[in-house]
Amino acid sequence: MSIKWYDNDTDTFFEEGHRVTWFGDENETEGELKMIGEKTFAVQWEDGSYIEYPNDHQEAIKKI
């Protein structure tokens, strides 16, 4: 079962596999949402880094 979240500000659902960017990133770093868990989510960034974030950082991710 895939967990997803909803962003009220952009009226957007986020699911695993969606392309995302870090909101406010001047370099517009892009990545793929690899995992959404109950307490964390993870992004595989275009530079090859795989980073897990706590769910309270979801507002920093925007779908592209």
Results as ranks from 00 to 15, higher is better:
residue 56 D to S: 15
residue 61 I to R: 05
residue 57 H to Q: 12
residue 44 Q to H: 12
residue 36 I to T: 07
residue 21 T to L: 09
residue 6 Y to N: 02
residue 7 D to C: 10
residue 32 E to V: 14
residue 40 T to H: 01
residue 26 E to W: 06
residue 59 E to Y: 15
residue 45 W to L: 10
residue 24 G to A: 04
residue 56 D to V: 06
residue 40 T to P: 00
residue 33 L to E: 02
residue 8 N to F: 09
residue 11 D to F: 06
residue 35 M to T: 09
residue 46 E to Y: 00
residue 4 K to F: 11
residue 29 T to I: 14
residue 54 P to M: 07
residue 23 F to R: 15
residue 56 D to M: 05
residue 63 K to P: 00
residue 12 T to Y: 01
residue 43 V to M: 06
residue 29 T to F: 06
residue 28 E to C: 10
residue 11 D to R: 00
residue 24 G to M: 07
residue 22 W to Y: 15
residue 49 S to L: 11
residue 39 K to I: 00
residue 60 A to H: 09
residue 59 E to N: 12
residue 31 G to D: 02
residue 63 K to W: 02
residue 40 T to A: 02
residue 37 G to K: 01
residue 42 A to I: 04
residue 4 K to G: 15
residue 29 T to M: 11
residue 41 F to S: 07
residue 58 Q to K: 15
residue 44 Q to W: 06
residue 36 I to K: 04
residue 9 D to V: 12
residue 28 E to T: 10
residue 31 G to T: 01
residue 63 K to D: 07
residue 11 D to W: 03
residue 1 M to N: 00
residue 3 I to L: 15
residue 50 Y to Q: 11
residue 56 D to K: 11
residue 28 E to S: 14
residue 60 A to Q: 11
residue 3 I to W: 09
residue 56 D to P: 08
residue 46 E to L: 04
residue 45 W to H: 07
residue 29 T to Q: 13
residue 44 Q to Y: 09
residue 26 E to G: 10
residue 51 I to V: 14
residue 10 T to D: 01
residue 3 I to P: 01
